[in-house]
Design a protein around this nucleic acid. Structure first.
Lengths: 330, 330
DNA sequence: GTGAAAGCGCTAACAC
DNA sequence: GTGTTAGCGCTTTCAC
């Protein structure tokens, strides 16, 4: 017995046909005479032959693999994006080559460039500005970005960040809050859009937004930022957080500091992470449709690979999920 | 300009050397005369040449890719496993080919078999029994399983499930609870170990364990199971849940049903999911070291690929994290 | 319908 | 040090 798996040649020899015939049989490219087909079937089965995907990829130039580069798989937004992308990929017989860049912009480019030649296309999430993302155009592979881009000719699936915070701010204004703070994550390129949205809503009411920042989009960062926001000279009545994780950390720490939630301060997040439903008070948030984002991005890429024309960029719409962490001002 | 990326031949032609020389240069296999080295460097840079990893893999038989098959990326245990595995992989210049099998045992085998020929090794999590996992031995690639296996010669990184629930049960006994229930997930092969651990602790005290089951390891399933446990004829004083998600759902629903937590019922989970810290009461749990599990599994695989002898299977030890969801019986 | 032959881009002996 | 050569396992014209 030869070492390793049987090759197409072994099958050809056993069936008494040429390798070309075996190839066509395995790929279902052609019809065969019953006699040959039977021999082929026998040989393939008794040998347990499976074609080598690497060799095939080298010729066809297709790997049936999609590269997915995200910033942090433990961030529930990205967890759901990957979930959605994986689902659609599997349906179309694609597999994910996943890279978690760990919010490390320095590593990002080299890792993605190393990924590109091994995949048919890429789905990328990056904190980089559009100028800093120019190089992605040179990857020579179809790319879908997980956020709206204007200046660059890269297909994308984005989210209306401006509207999201606008809606949250309006929600809070409707509840009677006047002094509203935004606890953001400045390193994210979309942070400015979120600030703009909240600011616009407040401006309409003749109010100003109080902007704070965290060093990471995590619960821990939210905890750390809390005292700065709540014990400063000008305590807000309500706080809009960059995401649900920050909101969760913020709420926990606020309670530790002796504030009653939501009476003393209303808090809202963005993402609709599962856990917002299980904390107390349950978290008012914006559904960012993360899983749908992953699905649509993957579908867009697969369509592009199938030669379909790009149906245009997508902007997912925010949906407010009002829960108990935001209440009318006493 | 030729279409597509430049090949090793283009570089060879431009530098006026043979393709073999270019190959050796690119792989740093050998030293060169300064003159040749300079020409090589020039050619590679001006052409922007990058070697085709597929072609290389075909010859070397190495893809620098590790297949990771998990059951559900949105389950925080697996999210952390992937996080840990990704970290170690990146350090060693490997990439993850990820498959989320969506808790679908029927699909599992075919997906993993399709994965195998494209990777250097695999990390697999499966609910299948050892008998049902026999086929993994025939993958012809090094495999590391994410749980202890006894009957099969597959290297693994497991967790002492029996001890975990034993510890939780003892913790609850120490708090004065006598009537303790276990809310499990029967489809998991490790569920029996968890039952056995809790049962053993109770048996030592001359008590019996009240066993219930859920249909999924999710918060929703925990919610659904709650009334069955809490409104049955024999209400428990404390509940040990299969994991933190089930515990979270259970606690939420128990509150809805009018129970005061933790006074009316103590609840504990397993995994140490981030969110257990942010719910109220904060969740007593067992740290299952999920991220470490991912790291160790990847390290084990990389060691195996480097030809190192297997250092033996690993069993991670549970660590109790006592929080507010478990209190002394009133 | 079936097969012969060329070659995808690269590495690994082995000469020189 | 550098080049020649022989493939890796497969697909794909293009004859027959």
């Amino acid at each position: 017995m030869k070492s390793g798996s049987p090759t197409i040649r072994d099958v050809a020899a056993m069936a008494g046909v040429s390798v070309a015939t075996v190839s066509k049989y395995v790929n279902g490219t052609q019809r065969f005479s019953p006699a040959v087909e039977a021999k082929l079937k026998d040989a393939v089965e008794s040998l347990g032959y499976r074609s080598n995907p690497l060799a095939r990829s080298m010729i066809t130039g297709r790997t049936r693999t999609i590269g997915v580069a995200i910033l942090d798989i433990t961030n529930p937004h990205f967890t759901k994006v990957v979930k959605g992308a994986n689902r659609v990929a599997l349906q179309h017989d694609y597999t994910l080559l996943l890279v978690d860049t760990e919010e490390n912009p320095a590593r990002e480019r080299s890792v993605i460039e190393a990924l590109a030649p091994r995949v048919d296309g890429l789905i990328i999430s990056s904190r980089a500005s559009e100028e800093m993302a120019q190089w992605m155009l040179e990857l020579d592979k179809p790319v879908v970005m997980l956020r709206s881009v204007r200046g660059l000719a890269i297909p994308n699936v984005g989210f209306d960040n401006r509207l999201a915070t606008y809606m949250l701010a309006r929600h809070l204004l409707n509840l009677g809050h006047r002094h509203i703070a935004y606890l953001g994550f400045g390193a994210a390129s979309i942070n400015d859009e979120r600030i703009a949205g909240a600011r616009a809503a407040l401006a309409e009411a003749g109010l100003a937004l109080d902007v704070h920042d965290t060093h990471a989009p995590t619960a821990q960062a939210g905890e750390q930022a809390c005292s700065r926001v709540m014990l400063g000279p000008d305590r807000p009545q309500a706080v809009i957080c960059y995401n649900d994780l920050i909101a969760l950390g913020f709420m926990k720490e606020a309670k530790s500091l002796g504030f009653r939630l939501p009476q003393d301060v209303s808090v809202a997040g963005i993402d609709n992470a599962l856990y917002g439903e299980y904390v107390e008070p349950s978290l008012t948030t914006i559904d960012a449709q993360s899983e749908t984002m992953g699905e649509l991005a993957m579908q867009k890429l697969i369509d592009a690979l199938a030669g379909k024309e790009d149906a245009g960029n997508i902007v997912l719409e925010p949906r407010l999920i009002a829960r108990d962490s935001t209440v009318a001002r006493a």
